[in-house]
Design a protein around this nucleic acid. Structure first.
Length: 872
RNA sequence: GCGGGCGUGGUGGAAUGGUAGACACACCAGACUUAAAAUCUGGAGGGGGUAUCCCCGUGCGGGUUCGAGUCCCGCCGCCCGCACCA
């Protein structure tokens, strides 16, 4: 019997067209079925999809198709994160308009995504660079401004001298711009900010409720928000006349160590430092030096603690008559706490280093458990663990926690300058989100600056503020700013000459609400709240770990801000979050050290050792490490080529099969070929089943024999397990289950020919179920098989097969028999056989009798239907 | 330094405290073929006896348990994130 080979090149485009024509994946909000929203992070339209996209969208598509089969009304949309720097870079390099470049890329990538056979509702497609999208963003900006969620302030910003733009703190990595890699400078600019720090506590505490998020992501967000509780403490200056101040405020989380204080340190950026430096050239030079070190030094941890001793001293707040010197120190940050600290060298390593350098007292005030108060001293390691307080007046004998409370109460009750000397305070590391970008290719900030009336929002009737197309990129900086006419407008209030804001919004704003826009992508308001509230939160969001902090935190904030402005009715946008691993590939280098792409290398196995040869010149090539696919290492394969050679299904199947989705997966040619072979195996099984049925056409079907029943059981088990595995996103296990079922079906196909009357129905049923199981993963092959089997309609519309619980249980169980915990044999018994009966049977087994060698067992552990352990 | 994760055959990886290595990739042998491809059958953690058995084995050392890859304690190694945050 010969069956024609399955041809994905023919079948895949055909089914994609069928789904399109049937509007199979178009979703209606009115549909009464239970809604399910699955979303993958939308791509930046760089021009071509990469393997990371293939993985991301395959994972999401399996979930979407599975939930559809389970009877849910599934929303599975796709769009484009279309603003951003690369479009401007392309404009500069190739003279293309950023909009033209971006829209071309979208067209190309959409075709690629379509060829993957994704079950996407393309009628909901959005691109953030279109006025239809960003006009709503502008209108929400105005709403949020009016609601007090946005503020404008002068602030020191991270300036990227190569990209000529401001960067958010999150976009500065090791003091360098995240895109350009250039050393970031500090500049003072007036910027727009989302007041995300107002939500710090809520964004932190709500993390506890996000139980369907990876622990890792939640931890990263917790650290990023960086909550610390402590005391704001005021130190009176002995003589502050020179500086025009009477006290210095510090923030501390260790008020319990106040008796161990030996100095005060100010940040180089502290206002008091600035005042002092004005009349002090030496200090001024020290401050300048700190600034040079600031961002340039990568090895901050090795940076020396340095300080400048000012003329100031403060009174010790708890020890009468004692004073502390005031330093300016390079390690004190202005933008955390109050920009000033007190140093307790005995119990803080940094303070200790500083104290040793400047010969300041090191007075221990925390005694380790079992320590001797008379002799305990700190040498080169600060003591930071638990203990009891000593050398500390009214705090003596307390634990650290008790002493913190006691100190806080003590200082809260004392007045200095008519105010409490100490105040309990919570500090967060999270800063406000600066959204201004000095860039053309982004959503214009809808603001007008009038000399007379000030800074005004653009009236909503005048929205959108549309980006002009006629821009040039012949000089660096913001092309919008260079535009001859665009920024000149009349003031909406007084009608006089005014100027548009030429800054555009950070692209993270665009991606902070697109998931909500998908629920009503054509509405003339940002959202239709009733519709958005029906769909949101996203049931399953899938994307890369690289967005664990920025995008997810901003989206969580934006959802709250949209709630505050009446656009949404919920706080958390993503109920389930999943972060996928990377796609990696082997790397290859030529003899002379050039990176070689997989296509440039040929392999052979000599004496069991895999060897590579550079095809171009026949010279040996080096097989290197397995690394994330990257352009620079040339270790990638273009998904387009894979799709053309093997088809979408083979690519999808392989990327699902090889590794758990949260781990990295190594892309191998052999692996895709294996997936391709498996497709043919399924196709042959279907052909064989049809053939057997045809030959048995006249036979009267009888009821199942044992063989048929066993087959049915393995089918039910597979349906049950695969469903559970997909729900748990354990796709690699689902794949393994499907392989097992396929093996069982192929085996039994041979047996069915022997007794078709009693076995054929079980086989036919089993093959049909198998096709439904593979449908979420290999949808085109599944449709082709479904059609060949003569089934009605599309498998994409078929309901997930029901599982008969009775078919999941067996009548007999195989119980392993252990002797002292080591497996020595097994026994097949009826399920539920009483322990006494099992014991009798076990002890009468020849092998057990032999091994017991006449000894009586001390104990026999029997776990019903599981295991027997004989202890001697 | 702080936080999170991981460590199982040649490889990717399976295993509610209960038969370690499912399933796949790669490999080897055989069948079919003039041959190759495709396909089918079989083999395989390591070591020894080399049918039918025994010993060892989940990074290392302890512990709990009838029983530990899994739980606890102490190490080692790798990966990721954050990091002068007071």
């Amino acid at each position: 019997m010969s069956v024609e080979r399955y041809n994905p090149r023919e079948a895949e485009p055909r089914w994609q067209q069928v789904w399109d024509d049937a509007k199979s994946f178009v979703t209606n909000t009115d549909d009464p079925r239970e809604p399910y929203y699955v979303l993958e992070m939308f791509p930046y339209p760089s021009g071509r999809i990469h393997m990371g996209h293939v993985r991301n969208y395959t994972l999401g598509d399996v979930v979407a198709r599975f939930q559809r089969a389970k009877g849910k009304n599934v929303l599975h949309p796709m769009g484009w994160d279309a603003f951003g720097l690369p479009a401007e870079n392309a404009a500069m390099e190739r003279g293309l308009n950023p909009g033209t470049w971006t829209r071309q890329n979208i067209t190309a990538m959409k075709a690629q995504l379509k060829s993957m056979g994704l079950s996407i509702d393309w009628t909901r497609e959005i691109a953030t660079c279109e006025p239809e999208y960003y006009s709503h963003q502008q209108s929400m900006f105005i709403d949020m401004l009016e609601a007090g969620l946005i503020t404008r302030k002068k602030s020191k910003v991270n300036w990227d001298p190569v990209d000529m733009t401001v960067l958010a703190n999150e976009q500065v990595i090791d003091g360098k711009g995240w895109r350009s890699g250039a050393a970031v400078e500090q500049r003072e600019l007036t910027q727009w900010f989302f007041k995300i720090s107002d939500y710090a506590e809520e964004l932190l505490s709500a993390l506890d409720g996000l139980t369907d998020w990876p622990e890792k992501v939640r931890t990263m967000q917790r650290n990023w928000i960086g909550k610390s509780e402590g005391l704001r403490l005021r130190f009176e200056l002995v003589d502050g006349a020179e500086a025009g101040a009477s006290s210095i405020e510090v923030f501390t989380t260790r008020p319990d160590t106040i008796f161990g204080a030996s100095f005060i340190a100010l940040s180089p950026d502290h206002p008091l430092t600035t005042v002092l430096a004005a009349n002090n050239a030496e200090l001024s030079e020290f401050v300048a030096e700190c600034h040079r070190m600031g961002t340039a030094t990568e090895a901050i941890e090795t940076a020396e603690k340095r300080g400048y001793r000012t003329a100031l001293t403060v009174k010790h707040p708890a020890i009468d008559g004692a004073t502390l010197p005031v330093y300016v120190a390079n390690f004190v940050l202005m933008d955390y706490g109050t920009g000033a600290i007190f140093g307790c060298p005995a119990h803080d390593q940094r303070d200790l280093d500083f104290a040793r350098k400047y010969d300041l007292p090191v007075k221990p005030v925390v005694l380790p458990p079992g320590g001797d108060a008379a002799t305990f001293a700190v040498a080169n390691d600060a003591y930071t663990d638990a203990g009891s307080i000593f050398n500390s007046g009214f705090l003596d004998g307390l634990s650290i926690e008790e002493a913190k409370k006691a100190a806080a109460a003590h200082f809260a009750a004392r007045l200095v300058d008519g105010q409490p000397q100490g105040q309990v305070e919570v500090n967060y590391r999270l800063r406000d989100w600066g959204l201004s970008r000095q860039r053309y290719w982004g959503a214009p900030i809808p603001i007008i600056h009038c000399e007379v009336c000030g800074t005004l929002p653009v009236p909503k009737k005048d929205l959108p503020v549309v980006l002009p197309d006629d821009v040039t990129f012949d000089k660096p900086g913001n092309a919008l700013d260079h535009h001859p006419t665009w920024k000149h407008v009349n003031c909406p209030q007084c009608g006089g000459a005014a100027r548009r804001e030429t800054d555009t919004m950070d692209t993270f704003v665009d991606s902070s609400w697109y998931f909500a826009r998908f629920t009503a992508p054509h509405a003339d308001t940002p959202t239709i709240p009733a519709v958005a509230n029906r769909w949101l939160p996203v049931d399953q969001y899938i994307g890369g770990i690289e967005h664990a902090i920025l995008h997810l935190l901003y989206s969580r904030f934006f959802t709250r801000a949209m709630k505050a402005t009446g656009h949404l009715g919920l706080d958390e946008p993503f109920k389930g979050m999943f972060t996928q691993g990377m796609v990696t590939h082997e790397t290859y280098k030529s003899e002379d050290g050039r990176w070689l792409s997989p296509e440039e290398v040929r392999f052979e196995t000599v004496d069991g050792e895999r060897r590579a040869t550079e095809i171009a010149n026949g010279r040996p090539a080096r097989i290197g490490a397995i690394e994330k696919i990257s352009k620079s290492k040339r270790n990638g394969t273009d998904p387009d080529d894979i799709l053309k050679v093997y088809g979408a299904d083979a690519a999808r199947w392989f990327i699902l099969s090889d590794s758990p989705p949260e781990r990295d997966v190594e892309w191998t040619e052999a692996g895709v070929e294996g997936a391709s072979r498996f497709q043919q195996r399924i196709w042959r099984l279907v052909g064989e089943t049809i053939e057997i049925a045809k030959q048995s056409a006249g036979i009267v079907r009888a009821s199942d024999d044992d063989e048929a029943l066993a087959l049915r059981k393995s089918v039910h088990r597979a349906v049950h397990n695969v469903g559970g595995d997909i729900e748990g996103l354990r796709f690699n296990r689902a794949v393994a289950q499907i392989y097992e079922l396929t093996n069982a079906l192929v085996r039994s196909a041979g047996l069915v020919a022997v007794a078709p009357a009693a076995r054929l129905s079980a086989l036919e049923e089993g093959v049909a179920r198998l096709i439904q199981l593979i449908a979420p993963m290999m949808p085109h092959l599944a449709e082709t098989c479904w059609e060949a089997l003569g089934k009605d309609g599309l498998v994409a519309d078929a309901a997930w097969p029901a599982v008969d619980a009775a078919m999941l249980v067996d009548d007999t169980v195989t119980m392993p028999i252990q002797l002292n915990g080591k497996r020595r044999g097994e026994i097949v018994v009826a399920k539920g056989l009483p322990a006494a009966e099992v014991e009798k049977r076990v002890l009468s087994l020849d092998e057990i009798v032999r091994m017991l060698d006449g000894k009586a067992p001390k104990k026999i552990v029997i776990v019903p239907d599981r295991i027997v352990n004989v202890v001697v």
